[in-house]
């Protein structure tokens, strides 16, 4: 239990560091920089264990978003979006089951019975919702077609690829 909590703390700080040192420094000052705004925190919320109680899931997502807000001076945007994702993702992952042979401490989303395609749709859908909300609130809805939509599509795809990559690096499915 404590070990897995520590693991999630480590994951959170890894995400903050990747966001701060890598993602926020690429394309700064560039004309096309606005297309590149992936927010990795959504990965943290999506990877929380599905055996968590719904209320705890919402609370932890809110706290993660809030901490992210503190780090990146975006007061409340990440918190609002993370809480919504935490609330809705429960309905997607509550009936998840581990593949036979997976250990209890494995990440259930990683070792779920539903397979790759389900996992990809799960990540892509929620990443898209998250980025749409984030960009919409952040820009107050200005420049919807010229700036927000292209930025939304690009950032979602980039974040999706990054999440898959990072996940493959971090979670090795350990089986007996």
């Amino acid at each position: 239990m404590i070990l897995s909590i520590l693991k999630y703390f480590a994951l959170f700080f890894l995400i903050v560091i990747v966001q701060l040192f890598v993602l926020n420094n690429i394309f700064i000052g560039n004309y096309y920089g606005f297309l590149f705004q992936p927010q990795l925190i959504v990965m943290f919320v999506l990877l929380l264990p599905s055996s968590m109680q719904h209320s705890w899931l919402i609370l932890v997502s809110f706290l993660a978003g809030f901490l992210f807000d503190v780090f990146f001076q975006s007061w409340g945007i990440h918190a609002a979006a993370c809480t919504l994702i935490g609330f809705t993702r429960h309905y997607a992952t509550r009936d998840i089951e581990n593949v036979i042979g997976a250990r209890d401490e494995d990440n259930q989303i990683w070792t779920s019975k539903k397979g790759q395609v389900w996992k990809w749709t799960y990540f892509l859908t929620f990443t898209a919702i998250y980025h749409f909300l984030f960009l919409l609130i952040e820009s107050h809805g200005h420049n919807f077609f010229t700036r927000l939509l292209p930025s939304f599509v690009c950032s979602t795809l980039i974040a999706f690829v990054l999440i898959l990559l990072l996940e493959n690096l971090i979670y090795k499915p350990a089986r007996n």
Partner: peptide, 22 residues
């Protein structure tokens, strides 16, 4: 329905902070 209440409460909190502080 605790989770729904919690969700609404936290969402309202963050929206207030968006409006007030952002």
């Amino acid at each position: 329905k605790l989770h729904v209440l919690l969700f609404l409460l936290l969402e309202i909190l963050s929206i207030i902070s968006i409006i007030r502080f952002n």
